[in-house]
Simulated scan of single mutants.
Amino acid sequence: MTLVTAFIGVILALLLKRFLLLPDRGKALWSGYLEVPVDVNLAAFMFGIGSMTHVAINDTTPPVILGMVVLLILSIIVWKLSCNTMSDRDSEVYFAHPLGLLFLTAVNIGLAGIAILVPVQWLGAQA
């Protein structure tokens, strides 16, 4: 149930972020869409930290938390690299390397999935 409520929280936060803020255009709009896996990774990190209060802390907890921080940092780096493959030209977005952008987005989605599984698998959080 905890994992379901975490996903609902992420979805609500993303909807609020998309529709309550000022509408973006061009590269900023695409960067916002590419930012979704980073947001999911951050929510998974917060889920992992929050789950530590419900599970017994053992010798593997500090390395797992450090791994979650590394996953979050890697996700941000991949997002920055993804944004560097785009540029604004005359109010239109130009994709310099569309296949590279697709690959980096897939990597970032994979990092977000791993970040969700880490607290459940290694910390023993109840899904």
Rank of each mutant, 00 (worst) to 15 (best):
V64R: 09
A115H: 03
M46L: 15
V78W: 09
A43P: 02
K17A: 14
S82W: 05
L42K: 05
L111W: 00
M46T: 00
P62R: 00
F103G: 06
T61C: 15
V70Y: 13
G110L: 14
G67K: 03
N58A: 10
A127P: 09
S91G: 07
D90G: 07
L81K: 12
K27S: 01
S75P: 02
V70G: 07
L101W: 07
K17Y: 07
A44C: 12
A56K: 10
K80V: 11
G32K: 04
C83R: 12
L74H: 02
A127S: 06
L21T: 02
F7G: 05
T53E: 15
A13L: 14
M86L: 13
G26S: 03
S51A: 14
I114C: 06
P119N: 07
L72I: 01
L16E: 14
V40N: 09
I11H: 14
N84D: 14
T53Y: 15
A43H: 03
A6E: 09
I73C: 14
L22C: 06
G124S: 01
M52E: 13
A43F: 08
I11M: 13
A56E: 15
L99D: 10
T61K: 07
N108R: 00
N84K: 13
V10E: 15
V118H: 04
W122N: 02
I109D: 12
A125H: 00
D39V: 08
L15A: 10
S82P: 04
W122E: 12
A44I: 00
P62F: 00
N84F: 07
L117K: 10
L14H: 07
T105H: 11
G26W: 02
V93S: 10
L102E: 09
V70T: 04
G48W: 01
K80F: 12
V78E: 15
I76L: 15
A43W: 08
R89Q: 14
